[in-house]
Amino acid sequence: MKKLSNKKLAMLVSILCFTVVIFSTTIGIADISFVQTIKILLNRILLMDIDMEGIKPSASAIIWLIRFPRSLLAFFVGGSLAICGVSYQSIFKNPMADPYILGVSSGAALGATVGIVARLEFYIFGLNAISILAFIGATGSLFLVYNISRVGKKVPVNTLLLSGIAIGQFLSAAISLMMVFANDMHRIIFWTMGSFNARSWSQLIMVLPYALIGFAVIFSTQREMDIMLLGEDTAAQLGVDTERLKRKILVTTALVTAASVSVTGIIGFVGLIIPHIVRIFTGPKHIYLIPYSFVTGGIFMILCDTLARSMISQEIPVGIITALFGGPFFVYLLKQRKTGGL
């Protein structure tokens, strides 16, 4: 596949990004036109004095309090998962790595399950108990996995992956056990499939700092991540402090993933596939791979969420959509590529 020049690609992606946000905000059960949506957003964001005649206050509320923050949340969650996927695939040199590989998702799910089963109802900064417990579970499981695989100052990649998988399986079994005895099986299953339903500004505010700071930290390592792809020993001989880089990436991605998962549930596939799709167009250099993965992951997530809430009258968990539509598309791209592999 021919690579586009970087300027063209950047322009294309920004236009696409903007269009998709507006478009997804327009679509929904309540019939609000494209123009009305733009008017409402301009009015709200720039506090412009626009003629709001013919626009009901309820429409304004739907756009501003429900659809727009939901769309932005989808963008940042999608972007976060995608760059975490990029980071893991690079430091593990493993194309199958995704943000959940070290048991972060299982930890989060366990936290959420505890919250659901115990019917905890409290709020901190507008976040409910389930989100908070999920966040604790996610960071806790990574802390556990990291310390299990640590040998002195070093963290061997293979041990890390294996203990991540082991802990993940263990936690999943614990969740299943709880589900057997709980009456809320339905809620738990829905949570693990991920959704943006009823998420709004408070969830966005929770995710945003992790997404932005996480992006900045991960992007700052772009040069070292390139070198890491040559193998750990070579990277070390080229002046990369590989252990420090791994620690930095693990901690950052764990926090970013935990933040995303705790508010939306486990949305699979994005973190695995988006990096591969983007790599086909940009090549392996992280200076392009990281920002494009973020934006592409974000756009992809908005599109999936839009489908999830508008395909049929009942909302489908977005994790189903990401895999259902992303999977065949990825297979198509793989077939198109002659060189194969990554």
Binding site: K93, R223, E224, D226, I227, L229, L230, L238, G239, V240, G283, P284, K285, T339, G341, L342
Partner: peptide, 15 residues
């Protein structure tokens, strides 16, 4: 395993 060109590889020596 990744599609770095020769220039990229040499540039890594500047790290």
């Amino acid at each position: 395993d990744f599609e770095f060109n020769a220039f990229d590889i040499v540039m890594m020596g500047r790290n």
